[in-house]
Write a protein that binds this DNA or RNA. Structure first.
Lengths: 195, 195
DNA sequence: TGACGATCTTAACTTGGGTTAAGATTATAC
DNA sequence: GTATAATCTTAACCCAAGTTAAGATCGTCA
């Protein structure tokens, strides 16, 4: 499959975007390559683009004012949307950094063009609603993991449900995502041996 | 103000629902009184109603399969929407209990009627999008609090930002919401004295 | 291959929350 | 106003994660 076919396939399975609706959007998608460590969106920047990851992994992180620690909030990987959702929706500055952790390729569309598509097409309006619901689900699941699971359970969950992330990301970034320090993750991994 | 005026005022400030659009919805709103401890929506139930709280406080909580502990997820209070959002949107069974913590009065609308309003009116469609964005914001803020703040900071935050909840809810429910046990909250409160 | 930087683990110690059960305080009902 | 239940605090002990720094391992590239 070429890149447009991959994109159409993903949009169709996600939101039932048919060939005609996809055609509508085609002039608006652009492609960008990211080197490892490049920013998709920076702190204080308004996020103006919704991206679709053809390849690579991104992370969204927060930097604590006081301790200057980085805290990983989300990972985004292949065939997923990457966006600073709240900033994108409200067009306000973002509190996070969103950075590529690997070389990456992204197809992206400007918010103005997306808004245009919303007005032109029911299918795209539906897409907008589904993105909102997906964002809610992502945030809610994150909150639930933190509320209901121990760090150890969160670790096992991540391995099981997101091997693509686990296998492409250094452990200290995993630890930060799980809400613990690197030595704690090492201890958890040691405890697991033989279980 | 009578109850319909309160509702219209809230809908107007939240989503710019004008008198005509409000009029459209009027036949669909119903009123219910809750005694303390009654359920707005139960575990495994599909949430079919979106509620607007005229008075009272509700909590949404999860029960751990293993320990049988209750974990408070959200509080909803006066002049806010109460709903099990994910269950409502997807019309799937809810993982939570949503229960009134005080006597309460709620105006509520059935999902089918709301969907009907979405189709009839742009203003109501906008309302639907804003509810989605509010739900996202609530879940994201919950996740951020758990990721970035210590239990102590979360406690101070709650007092400052949600005195209405803090003043109407027993401390052991607050502790559960903060993600700690009641004795820990006592220790935090003791530490605070003199600060 | 060997050296450097990146990553991961370990150790030793500190800190704060979990657990359990008892006791103090507050609210509520009779 | 007193009894009773609900709520809140305290104590004692345990355990997991935080912190810091050192050391082991892995990857990469000249």
């Amino acid at each position: 499959m070429n890149e447009n076919q991959i994109l159409h396939y993903a949009l169709n399975s996600f939101a039932g975007i048919d060939p005609a609706a996809f055609e509508l959007s085609l002039p608006y998608w652009q492609k960008r390559q990211y080197g490892k460590g490049e920013f998709y969106n920076e702190y204080k920047n308004v996020c103006k683009y919704l991206g679709f990851i053809l390849d690579g992994v991104f992370r969204t992180y927060y930097i604590d004012d006081v301790t200057a620690d980085e805290k990983n909030v989300f990972f985004f990987s292949k065939n997923q949307v990457v966006v600073a959702y709240k900033s994108f929706v409200t067009q306000t500055p973002c509190n996070y950094y969103t950075e590529s952790m690997t070389d990456a390729t992204v197809l992206y569309i400007h918010i103005n063009h997306l808004t245009q598509l919303y007005q032109q097409s029911h299918q795209w309006e539906r897409f907008g609603r589904l993105v909102a619901e997906t964002a809610f689900d992502l945030a809610m699941t994150r909150a639930e993991d933190l509320m209901f699971l121990s760090p150890e359970q969160r670790y096992l969950d991540l391995i099981q449900k997101h091997p693509d992330i686990f296998n492409n990301v250094p452990l200290y970034h995993i630890a930060s995502y799980l809400g613990i320090q690197a030595p704690s993750l090492s201890r958890i991994r040691k405890r697991m041996i033989g279980k």
